[in-house]
Design a protein around this nucleic acid. Structure first.
Lengths: 214, 214
DNA sequence: TGTTTACTAGAACCATATTCTAGTAGATTG
DNA sequence: CAATCTACTAGAATATGGTTCTAGTAAACA
């Protein structure tokens, strides 16, 4: 009775559950043995489903990996935007980006690690989807930050410079922490990187105009 | 009966040539079709050698990937240290790190792309080797920068903070450029990121020492 | 009720990573 | 020099595991 529109029909409850359970299982396996290291059989066993089911839903092993990746990015992006929209001024917003990155990666360690592990090596179609997801996200982010730049609170820079300047350092720290090079959890460095981020993009007017915030 | 040096013998010229040609071929293939996408046959054909030869030298496909990765990192590290040692003061050194990262990645685009693509997903032994390589490198780097911190030209920070602060942004920019998200080649942003890096780690000797804000 | 279709199952299939056996050629030794 | 040793090469044989195929089941719908 719901959308009887042409082919467009809601997926069954069982379907979304199965897809989710496969992705969960896949993440476990990938985390444990890497993508190449896990076999379809491993995922099958962990998700308690058949080969046919896997291929029906995802088409291939790479399809599973891509879906997991894209969905993970989506989750991260939505969380970031939610957090951002609760912020007040430019400084708070910039610092929130760093803090959220840090918190999210710590809370979703396995997924964060997976998202860091690759970016390349996907099919063309996945590449395209990913790019679209990123473009949507970055557009929203720029809508949020635009006024701060226009209002002179933040430096005016080439658009592509902001993300690297603000989240480059925390991202690099988290990456190294996740792959075991650094001991200290990123939470310990959060404020340091948040301050650095703000320092990198704030407009510096030598004639100090206080810096009052609400 | 024993050789002059037990097992330690110089590899033949033909051997090093063969290894090099395999790695070159593998990089081509990986760049073109990704690691999973290239078969042993592809590499074999590109390097004009037999399966046996491949397995004799590298043990497995993953062995080839690891070797390429580790050797690539080594090349980068040696280049960076060479560049660093031609610098004079703290500011020049910090900026040189950013500039070298940018230049090297642009000059060795395929290899840089490969080095960005993964870090995880290797065998335990490769992980260990990689860590050792990194530790040696970072030790040298700290030997170089130590005096600048001691001399008060650079901020004193937790050791693990320097790399992310200095090279995080350029690295992130290059990564996105390599995977096609950004159009402008990193050279265009080099000085911007170099300045930012210096701003992030220089000791600020102004009156900002009295907490300006909350 | 019957029909349709989203989904599941697992055996069969096949591409390909890896192993195995049999070498060759350049160095080393007597 | 001959004998031998060892690093290296070759390609057929094997094993693993990703993918396809056929035959279903059960929920939605008429």
């Amino acid at each position: 009775m719901r959308g009887k529109r042409q082919h467009r029909t809601e997926p069954r409850a069982a379907t979304v559950a199965r897809r989710a359970s496969v992705l969960r299982a896949a993440l476990d396996c990938f985390t444990h043995s890497g993508i190449e290291g896990t076999t379809i059989g491993d995922i099958q066993r962990a998700a308690r489903c058949s080969v046919g089911s896997l291929y029906h839903h995802f088409g291939s092993k790479e399809g599973i990996a891509e879906e997991l990746f894209i969905e993970g990015i989506g989750r991260f992006n939505r969380g970031m935007l939610r957090r951002l929209r609760r912020c007040q001024g430019a400084e708070e917003s910039v610092k929130a980006v760093v803090r959220f990155y840090c918190d999210w990666s710590t809370r979703n360690r396995a997924l964060a690690s997976y998202l860091h592990s690759r970016d390349i090596d996907f099919s063309e179609s996945a590449r395209v989807r990913l790019k679209a997801v990123y473009r949507d996200y970055i557009t929203q982010v720029f809508v949020w930050f635009g006024p701060f730049v226009a209002g002179g609170e933040m430096r005016a820079l080439p658009p592509d410079a902001y993300v690297p300047l603000i989240s480059g350092p925390i991202q690099e720290y988290v990456r190294r922490w996740l792959s075991g090079h650094y001991e200290r959890p990123p939470g310990a460095m959060k404020e340091l990187f948040a301050d650095a981020a703000w320092k990198a993009v704030r407009a510096d007017h030598q004639s100090s105009s206080k810096g009052v915030k609400t």
